[in-house]
Write a protein that binds this DNA or RNA. Structure first.
Lengths: 198, 198
DNA sequence: GTCTGGTCGGCAAAATCTTGCCGATTAAGC
DNA sequence: GCTTAATCGGCAAGATTTTGCCGACCAGAC
């Protein structure tokens, strides 16, 4: 929460450009964060093996192992660490890959230190990787409990229905649910079994 | 709807460019999918209100409501539907927003119909981005319906509890649920509100 | 035509869940 | 000690949901 006290964020900063790396590291440090740097994926991985960090900030494009590869490796070592990418040449597919891999953010180069700091601090309060760690389900406070549960029921049924090409009998077995109950729910939730034959 | 032929994917295609819309729709149809189109977010939302679709493919940039806004709205109506964006002017932040919102994919314009089809079919078998888009909920078929719904309820409650530092009163408001009911559920599900001080 | 497998929906009893009312408990303040 | 705010849980009337039983449909097989 507060970057002032002893609970400073411990950040691993990875960038192959030494000047940028140093500059950013310095800025973050004077801003109260604990920063450890690495100029390539290999070094960064070594660093991760030593112990947990609160966040990883890495360039996407680096000689040797690229950011995505590195992030994948990092996830193996520390499954829940938030990874924040930045890149000057990010293509849409790159960003998609990164986000799928669980990136919590993606900044564009040149990275403004203040901006980076803001994002990092944001990680601190807001339930971090919430977005992907938890799924698109607990979208904010928007929907009331009841509605969400119903939505989930609908999802389960529709999914199972699709998975079994709409054969009720199979869905029944898969979901271990009473036929009458399933029928009732489908009626209530307005689920039609379009998924016809195949 | 079209229940005659196959267990076709039922796709909602949204694009303000009528020509592109028509062309893509045609291609997908001859490829065996069921397609319903909309030339703006408003129409698309109306369509969603009518019933579930298997996937939504939408342009990111549209007059009126943009794709992100639309996706958010769509999620309220159908929380689990996979949303696939495409855009020709996607900026990195756009892609980040989209992915955070649970997009399963992001294509660049011009969209090659074959490519789009491939991505859509990919959704069909292996719930692709499932891991994070959907959360740990519709994992295996293992658990029976009842159990899964309960697990989801538990998740919702625990999440909200954590989000409000264990203050029941706040959870009540957030989830719009009766206090007595929440208490009952917590007792039934064996949820304790440990979440002490921070 | 007749039979069979897969589905539906009406009905009603049984099982559950929801919720208002009320008193109890605990921690913090006055 | 007394008061207030935040929670809990017992109880019971109501509201909903779940299910078994039964008859009906429809499509394909015989």
């Amino acid at each position: 929460m507060n970057a002032s006290s002893a609970a400073a964020l411990y950040v691993l900063l990875v960038d192959d450009d030494h000047d940028v790396l140093a500059a950013n590291a310095r800025f973050l440090r004077v801003s109260g964060l604990d920063v450890v740097v690495a100029d390539c994926a290999t070094v960064a991985v070594e660093r991760l093996k030593e112990g947990p960090v609160d966040a990883i900030v890495t360039d996407l494009v680096m000689p040797g192992q690229n950011g995505i590869e590195f992030a994948r490796r990092a996830r193996e070592l520390q499954p829940f660490v938030p990874v924040l990418f930045f890149s000057g040449y990010a293509s849409v597919p790159d960003v998609v890959s990164a986000m799928r891999l669980g990136a919590v953010d993606f900044l564009e180069k040149p990275v403004e230190p203040e901006h980076l700091l803001t994002r990092l601090l944001a990680l601190a309060d807001g339930p971090v990787g919430a977005a992907h760690t938890r799924g698109a389900f607990d979208l904010s406070e928007a929907m009331p409990f009841r509605a969400r549960v119903l939505a989930y029921e609908r999802h389960l049924i529709e999914t199972s229905l699709a998975q079994h090409q709409g054969r009720i009998a199979d869905v029944l077995k898969a979901l271990k649910i009473n036929r009458r109950t399933l029928n009732e729910k489908m009626a209530r939730l307005g689920i039609r079994r379009d998924h016809a034959i195949d």
